[in-house]
């Protein structure tokens, strides 16, 4: 991966060792840098897990972005209309509301596929636009801040926000939510019967049907879990990091979750690792962009190369195993 990074820098005409050093410093050198990495890794990990669940069920969910945004909206509605609740309870309600909104949005795409034959790839891409437009509308309507001057929500009071570990960093307890979710999804896929059935449907819907599994219900359920995780990512960022929604609320976390999940080999533990890697890339490049004229454009380039490298490795492995059978 460092090699891919070095080659990308070289392609951009940057000083490779110096750039690598800046990236490293920005991502890992001190507690501020590490916090930066982890804060960015958190939504990537949660949404990445969502992608893993859907794709393992054979549902190619591209709608992580929309489900993330819906999670944020759900959280903001909760904060607005339940604001009289105790702060600690309210934050939990915000998270749950984010999960439910994302899950319903994901399940909608699953339902459209099972009942109406609409391809998940198509419907989830289109639902992304729907979610972004919904965000714009709510910011101009029911969720607009009290003074009605700008298109943002009210900022959450500090007591409602997730616990911070150090006043000098953004690191919030959402990082533990991501860790717990990773373990839960790992157990779910590997050691539970519904998780097993989900993987059977993903590997062979025909075999699942011949063995009397309710294929459609399992596919919809997988999309609901997937959307719930992406929605959780959105509400964790809302109640942990930003404290408010604005037009640019999602910075493509839901999209980047797809390469994160792929690079993680569509496994929960791998996704945790690759989310950390991508989180470090973002953290490092944020520092790098201040010191070079190219800046942020390096990041998507590196992501692209990383995923292509992964696909190339898979392809090579596949060819090798196939040759064994010829």
């Amino acid at each position: 991966m460092v090699l891919v990074l070095a080659l990308t820098f070289a392609a951009f005409g940057l000083d490779v060792p110096a750039s690598l050093a800046i990236m490293w410093k920005g991502a890992f050198s001190d507690k501020v840098a590490i916090a930066r990495t982890l804060v960015r890794a958190t939504p990537l990990c949660l949404a990445g897990l969502g992608i893993v669940v859907a794709w393992r069920a054979g549902m190619y969910n591209i709608g992580g972005e929309g489900q993330y945004v819906l999670g944020g909206i759900g959280g903001a509605f909760c904060a607005k209309f339940l604001s009289s609740f105790m702060p600690s309870v309210l934050s939990i309600f915000i998270l749950i509301s984010g999960i439910i909104c994302g899950a319903l949005f994901g399940a909608l795409a699953g339902w459209l596929y099972v009942k109406r034959g609409v391809q998940v790839v198509i419907s989830t891409i289109l639902l992304n636009f729907l979610a972004l437009l919904t965000l714009e509308w709510t910011l101009r309507g029911p969720l607009q801040e009290s003074k009605k001057q700008t298109f943002v929500t009210d900022t959450l009071p500090n007591e409602v926000m997730l616990m911070r570990f150090d006043s000098g960093t953004d690191l919030h307890s959402g990082v533990f939510i991501a860790l717990i979710a990773t373990v839960l999804i790992w157990v779910f896929l590997r050691y539970t019967i519904p998780g097993f059935h989900l993987r059977v449907v993903g590997d062979s819907p025909d075999a699942a049907r011949a063995n009397k599994l309710p294929v459609g219900a399992i596919q919809i359920r997988a999309m609901a879990i997937s959307g719930g995780l992406c929605g959780l990512a959105g509400s964790v960022d809302y109640v942990g990091l930003t404290g408010r929604l604005a037009d640019g609320y999602s910075q493509n976390w839901g999209f980047i979750a797809i390469p994160v999940a792929l690079l993680g080999g569509l496994t929960p533990i791998g996704t945790l690792g690759s989310a950390t890697y991508f989180g470090a890339l973002f953290a490092g490049s944020e520092v790098l962009k201040r010191s070079t004229p190219i800046g942020n454009s390096v990041v998507p380039a590196v992501q692209g190369f990383a995923v292509l490298a992964y696909i190339a490795i898979l392809w090579a492995l596949n060819r090798k195993t196939q040759r064994r059978f010829d």
Binding site: R199, V200, D203, S204, A207, A208, A210
Partner: peptide, 8 residues
């Protein structure tokens, strides 16, 4: 196709 999930 019907008897096995080959990837599992």
């Amino acid at each position: 196709t019907d008897g096995l999930a080959l990837g599992l």
